[in-house]
Amino acid sequence: MTAEAQSSRLRQTLSRRESDKGHEKQSHEAFFSPAPPARLAVLRLCTGIFSVLYLVLRGPHWLDISHFDSTRFLPIGVLFWLSSPLPALVFQALTVLCLLTGIAYTTGWRFRVTGPLFGLLLLLVTTYRNSWGQIFHSENLMVLHVLVIGFAPAADVCSSDRRRSSAPVPLRAFRYGWPVRLLALITVLTYLVAGLAKLHNAGFSWATGDVLLHQVAFDNMRKDAFGTVYSPLGAALVAHHWVFPPMALGSLFVELGAPLAGFSSSFARIWVPAAWLFHVGVLAFMAIVFPYPLFGVAFAAFYRVERLLEWRLLAPLVRHWT
């Protein structure tokens, strides 16, 4: 294929900034309006790279649970029916299989099979890892997003599958739009639930900042009591009570205001940075890392992420997959 033809195909396959401008207002207002295939493909790449790295970095630590006493096993979610822990070898094999399908998901290799399979395996291994008396709330959104993308046509472009296929791909289509908006909707709903939980458990007094002050103080104190790293900033700030009411109000704004971001692109432009800062604050004051939102992957569905493919740095990859 000549360079000119390649360039032309690239332009057709990826949505162009200019053509998007006219459509975007409508597409955020209409949940089911068409979108370019590259948007969903880039979301596949973002969630895939993140999940695979997460598995590589955290997986070895997860294998510790293979050695836990079986009395600690408290199955939840899709594993509620398990009466005893899985044999260590089975969990280790599932984790490795999950990692391999994750690589296939990311590269878009035989995606119709590997996409759903990775979603289900990630659900399985993370649920199992969370079935030992403590739920890690940093993994929920990643799993929900991978499940949605895994079952969506997210490998029609920029994928290994695309290299083998000569079938035409539409510039925009209904089937590429609603899964992206569903990802954004899931994101905002999880924040809404977190906000409602605060109102349910502490009422509007949560906004006074006392609950947050006590949470920051307790969490850092417990870390110190367990001989691990705590946030020196959070520890220093507990002496300054006035800091906490505005932070509490900010948290409630992010959480209870989240649904508006699902329906208004203008509000989303304010909400996404605010939600990201919220997680920066949690990291700074409590030394708790929520990597999925901190790296921006949780919020990628709010943006025209297909523009990333226009980066020169990614050009060789795009050419390879187009």
Partner: peptide
Amino acid sequence: FPLSTYSMFS
């Protein structure tokens, strides 16, 4: 999990 109450810190 993954459907949570997100009630940490609440």
